[in-house]
């Protein structure tokens, strides 16, 4: 019984480090040590719970130990695919982990901290990522489709080829983040905060970007096709080669929508300018570049 409890505890402790050479070995050595320590404490008259708590205290900080093992086995740092599908991982510390092609599908990942992590190629399909921190995280080639990212933080995040389609980002914040070739189809970005970000070849098709402040940010080849942008502002923004296609709908919904964007002080290239003009956007204070 206690062996099982300790085993579960160790499995959870090592979970953020993924799979690496020597993992099972170190876990089994620790387990045998902890078992022995536990029974010594029990023999001294401690109750089960106290003995368990005292036992796990003797483990110490495993981060350095894992680093040591990875160094000595010359294994590529946590490089094997990790499978976290359908798991409850909320409140987990994933800071600075390198987990390429990890799978976090259909999982509860609320309140996790991915600061400084390299998650290249990982998938987060249909998971709950509310209040997660992705500051300085590398999300290259990551698929985050149909996930909840409400109140998540993306400061200095690398978003190259990142697919975040059909996800929710209510009150999420993006600061100094770089969107490059990112796909953001049908995303709900209402009340999201964008500050000092750059957008290159990003596709926002069918997204809800109502009321968002894109002031002073740079947009290169960004697609806002059939996007709702009413009330959003692009003050002093740089907009080059972007499309705001309204489609061939009978309703003038998307046309009217374009009239409610504030482009005050923006710098817009000629083609994009003419596009916006044909939709009746107010471009009176725009500089053509």
């Amino acid at each position: 019984m206690i062996n099982e409890n300790l085993k579960v505890y160790l499995n959870n402790l090592f979970k953020p480090y993924g799979i690496f050479n020597g993992l099972e070995e170190i876990k089994s050595e620790l387990l045998s040590d902890l078992n022995e320590h536990y029974y010594e404490l029990k023999a001294r008259g401690l109750d089960d719970e106290t003995a368990f708590q005292e036992t796990i205290k003797t483990i110490g900080d495993i981060q350095q130990m894992v680093d040591e093992i990875l160094e000595t086995t010359q294994d590529t740092y946590r490089s094997l695919p990790h499978n976290f599908n359908g798991t409850d991982m909320k409140n987990t510390d994933f800071r600075n982990v390198k987990a390429h092609h990890a799978k976090f599908n259909g999982s509860d990942i609320k309140n996790c901290d991915f600061t400084g992590a390299d998650l290249t190629g990982s998938t987060f399909h249909a998971s709950d990522l509310t209040r997660c921190i992705f500051d300085k995280t590398n999300l290259t080639d990551v698929k985050m489709s149909a996930v909840s990212l409400n109140k998540s933080s993306f400061v200095n995040t690398i978003l190259t080829n990142t697919n975040m389609s059909t996800s929710e980002f209510k009150a999420a914040k993006f600061i100094y983040s770089q969107f490059f070739n990112s796909i953001m189809h049908m995303t709900d970005l209402r009340k999201a905060i964008f500050n000092q970000c750059t957008f290159t070849n990003v596709d926002f098709k069918y997204s809800d970007l109502r009321g968002i402040c894109f002031d002073q940010q740079t947009f290169n080849g960004v697609k806002f096709d059939k996007v709702v942008l009413a009330g959003s502002t692009f003050k002093n923004a740089i907009i080059k080669g972007c499309s705001f296609d309204c489609g061939h709908t009978f309703s003038k919904k998307y046309y009217r929508d374009k009239q409610k964007i504030n482009f005050d002080g923006a710098f817009i290239d000629k083609i994009t300018f003419l596009y916006l003009k044909s939709y009746g956007s107010d471009l009176s204070n725009v500089t053509i570049i």
Binding site: T58, G60, D61, Q64, M65, T72
Partner: peptide, 12 residues
């Protein structure tokens, strides 16, 4: 001596 510290040293 913590277990983790000991096993770091032992591996090294």
């Amino acid at each position: 001596l913590k277990e983790a510290t000991m096993y770091s040293a032992v591996r090294r």
